[in-house]
Write a protein that binds this DNA or RNA. Structure first.
Lengths: 221, 221
DNA sequence: CACATAAGTTTCTCCTGTAAACATGGAGGG
DNA sequence: CCCTCCATGTTTACAGGAGAAACTTATGTG
């Protein structure tokens, strides 16, 4: 399992020692239960796209008692918020990687990042839904809030850059940011819910819809 | 309480007679429990914006036993779907009413309908969230599916009309429809979650963002 | 080595959804 | 006019989940 930030990596390393005694079947101390719970939950989230989250189920699959998670998370929602935070980190990574430097234009960069976000949502529907659900209350957890803001910042930077190099119109960045974020997130949600396939939308609705938006933002009419 | 469709009105009228004997405190037969349960649930949804839906709580506030709702709904989700359906009907009504005929342009009509949708979401955040949550599975209930499609159709009609009268560019309607729906829904969700107020978005982000999209759809550059 | 403490477990209470069995009262047939 | 059926209630029961409290076990430190 990969690690998405330094904090969890540190936790893991600290507990490396106690993991040495895992020769017995059921070591009383798990070693890195916090991390394992998160990984298990992420795996279950990936398996069932619309899964009703249950702390006890996570504990069961992890092989610990149902009360064990409470030693690492205040309540069920704290785990959910941590999962959402990891989701935002991963989404940000996916979007950043999509913006390959040898793409011809800022518009192409935008398109790539947007499509990366929507692909991420389609490949991790459960996680994506969680990230934007009210279960992951961003007003409570500053770390989650920061992660979300940081991912949103990728888009902001791109817009500002595009405006400086003359690709985007000199509209208020805030307006373009709201429009872009809403468009991408809206398309992602529609794609997840399968509402872009069966109805009267064309074969490649995502890039087509993004082009409509980009036509309103770009200078190259 | 208003009625949103003919079916429920008929049910109410049929049960009008049995309601006559409501002089006693607890008439065994409620008279119109189905309708009352729905109204109570809608009221609770309006009161607490992020409320964890509970059938027993609805029954409690309605003043009946916790098992009574099962005489009218197969399970909890059937009630949720009915609530969502009513939500779509109301949303459609709000959007239709917003498109006042004396507005100058098709663009103005679009703007009015979009803002009506977002206002509806802000005034009924709980209901709106339910309408687009996985709890209201549109693949199960054809009535819910139809209601959602009908509301979506308002947008489609507007786009087609605008294309015929030369207001909108001759792009594929499907692309514009996907973009519009995503934009409006995305803005609504962001507005509900309060992510359009505190960050780096301007004072009137909704019309500004919609203008960005409309600039990409309209012919009047 | 003793022991404080972190990290497990068991047990308990309260809540939910849902099924099954029971009760009631209004409507329609004899 | 009464009797009986059925829709619509109620009570009771059960399986699960969240979370608190009390108990247990390793582990690292004075």
């Amino acid at each position: 399992m990969e690690y998405d930030d330094l904090a969890s990596m540190k936790v893991s390393c600290v507990n490396m020692v106690s993991r040495m005694s895992e020769t017995k079947d059921h070591p009383y101390h798990h070693g890195d239960l916090r991390r394992t719970l998160i990984d298990t939950a992420l795996a279950m989230l990936a398996a069932d796209q619309n899964w009703t989250f249950t702390l006890r189920e996570v504990a069961r699959r992890t092989g610990v008692s149902h009360a064990a998670p409470y030693k690492h998370f205040r309540d069920r929602e704290e785990l959910l918020r941590e999962l959402a935070r990891i989701g935002f980190v991963r989404l940000g990574k996916a979007m950043t990687e999509a913006m390959c430097p040898d793409l011809p234009s800022t518009r192409a960069h935008f398109m790539a990042a947007a499509q990366a976000c929507i692909e991420f949502a389609c490949q991790n529907p459960g996680l994506y839904r969680l990230m934007f659900s009210s279960d992951a209350d961003k007003t409570i957890d500053p770390q989650l809030h920061d992660a979300a803001k940081s991912t949103f910042g990728i888009l902001l930077d791109l817009l500002e850059r595009g405006q400086r190099d003359g690709s985007f119109r000199p509209v208020a960045v805030s307006a373009m940011a709201a429009a872009s974020w809403a468009q991408v997130h809206g398309l992602a949600m529609l794609a997840i819910n399968g509402q872009l396939l069966d109805e009267k939308v064309g074969p490649a609705p995502v890039p087509a819809a993004l082009d409509v938006l980009l036509d309103g933002m770009c200078c190259t009419d």
